[in-house]
Design a protein around this nucleic acid. Sequence first.
RNA 1: GUGGCCAUGGUGUAGUGGUAACACUAGAGUUUGUGGAACUCUCAUCACGGGUUCGAAUCCCGUUGGCCACC
Length: 390
Amino acid sequence: MFEILSKDERSAARTGRLTTEHGIVETPSYVVVGTNAAVRCLEPGDLPGTKTQMVIANTYHLWRELGEEGLRDYPGLHQEMGWSGPIMTDSGGFQVFSLGAAREHGAGKVQGMESRASRAEDAMVRVTDAGVYFVEGGEEHYLDAELSMKIQEQLGADIIFAFDEPSSPHHDRDYTRLAMERTHIWAERSLAAKASTQRIYGITQGGGFEDLRRESAEAIGAMPFDGFAIGGSFGTSFGSTETQLLKELAWSVPFLPEYKPRHLLGIGRVADLFNGVLAGIDTFDCVIPTREARHGSLWTRDGRLDIGGKGKYAEDGGVIETDCGCFTCAERGIPRRELHAMFREKNFEAGRLATIHNIYFFNDLMEKIRGAISSGTLADFKKEYLKEGP
RNA sequence: GUGGCCAUGGUGUAGUGGUAACACUAGAGUUUGUGGAACUCUCAUCACGGGUUCGAAUCCCGUUGGCCACC
């Protein structure tokens, strides 16, 4: 299923080939997020041409949206999305955090979470050793490892994830251990419950604690998963730090089997991708390219441009990025001023054109990183790209 | 010419004695296993000159500019 093609001599970086029933993924690779079985803003047929290799959808959100009946008759993600390439589904574990601890800590502990907390005050999460109760609008919905497996089979992705409990950066050591141990048990239950031939990744936890990270990587790494994912890392979000992410990778990845694929859940900004690859990560998924695109932020070689928001772009006749090969830049040649005006008019086409560009940008960056690893120039490429000093 | 009304940030407005508020605009930020969003910060010697008062965008006088009515 996974073959390592080349290794960087000076780091844990490697290029590889991940083979799925719906095609091959050259790694390291970015996985585009399509939570509700669609990449937001895109139309069917937009994805090919963005250098996208794999898409990830979400078990929790689709479960809530489709219901039991909708899932029973579900034709499968590939058909629903109009995407014939590889697909992953997240297990719903992250929603234990995003609808639970993230909001509770948002009451005052986690910086920048106020708006999130106030947005969904009616949602609550109660975690037990058996599973998780999600309360929404007065109704209670129970999800556990066995049900997550069943739903993920009905959704039909090529790669599925074990059900886990991510801990918050603000959980103390005792709770982080508790969540980690629960995650390990749920991992075994996920493996036991899976009845399909889908590939399944286990998820490691351990929060910000070195010994727990290692313990989790060793425990999950010893289980017969097809691949592994690092969970519960947050970059600079949720009150965490980039340094923390680097540490957590260093405390986890070396203790996973070398010959199996490794996924970093929920991360990637540009610097994170370089750091993750150097630490031995093969695939990443993140909402940044798509979310920021529909909010008017466009990624280029020179960083993020707020084309939808800043008035100076009203007069800018250039394309988003001069030598970009994406549909928006190369084929349509949309000037920045036109895209700016479309965002101002709240024209949804702006979100589509921006999303296409951003996805292409991140996929193209990963392609360049693969090339740098193969040619043994990753460190130099990173230095040059991030404009780091010697 | 006479009388009345008005003058507050880039724009439009609020504020009728206690050291300026709101919206848009502009600038700077926030976004990491989705939120087609939401926020944060910055930008005004209150037309000008006097006066009253402990204290004036606010009250009084004058100047300038604008609007309306009348001759």
